[in-house]
């Protein structure tokens, strides 16, 4: 016999289902008035320092069809590489944003500032990136990925470097399409399936 380990097990996930919008973004879902506004409407407030950017894209299933019912969340550092809550972080950067695929086109849009480089405990630097968490009907546990940028030096990033099949790393890199504009598509399955993270 041994002592009993003092550990609990994490509560299991379940799909967010088709009606995640009424719970998380009720005004977007057509049910205004319960809260003053939806949570996480803006990644930044006026006056946030850094380069304003807009990232657009869609979430595709294994058949190449863009999901119309996905809800996404993003989390990022400020332009100096500090996360909200860290000493000295930009007070106008909320870091968190919640947004949904358009119900007609499936496109999403995230307007924010480009984050700076962040540092690991061991001193290594992470290339600028935005964490993204994807939920929808049919997704049984939320999928975590990252948006990197094709006009940044990503060569030493510890996460991208861990992807053994180099072409797959490209699935995490947003393509610049214009001044301050990027495209980042997420593929749940199939050719060029996005790299999802377990971190």
């Amino acid at each position: 016999m041994t002592q009993t380990l003092r550990r609990l097990t994490e509560t299991p996930s379940q799909t967010a289902g088709p009606y995640v919008h009424i719970g998380c973004i009720p005004t977007f879902a057509g049910n205004p008035g319960i809260y003053p506004e939806d949570l996480g409407l803006r990644a930044i407030e006026d006056g946030a320092l850094g380069e304003p950017i807009t990232i657009t894209g869609a979430v595709y299933d294994g058949t190449g069809w863009a999901l119309r019912d996905a809800m996404l969340e993003s989390w990022q550092a400020d332009a100096a590489g500090l996360y909200p809550g860290q000493p000295g972080a930009d007070p106008n950067v909320n870091g968190f944003c919640r947004f949904a695929a358009d119900k007609d086109s499936g496109d999403y849009a995230l307007s924010t500032i480009k984050p700076g480089r962040t540092r690991l405990r061991d001193g290594r630097e992470q290339a600028p990136h935005i964490a993204v968490w994807i939920t929808a009907r049919g997704i049984n546990i939320g999928l975590l990925t990252r948006i990197y940028f094709d006009d940044e030096d990503n060569s030493a990033d510890p996460v991208l470097s861990r992807i053994e099949q180099r072409p797959r790393a490209d699935t995490l890199i947003a393509r610049k399409t214009g001044e301050g504009r990027y495209r980042f598509d997420i593929r749940l399955q199939g050719d060029n399936e996005t790299v999802f993270l377990d971190m």
Partner: peptide
Amino acid sequence: SRSPKWPLLSMESTITEETGP
């Protein structure tokens, strides 16, 4: 059609996952 076929990339968490709103 909505389940990834590739295994997840497993790594120790970084400041990105350890902080939150």
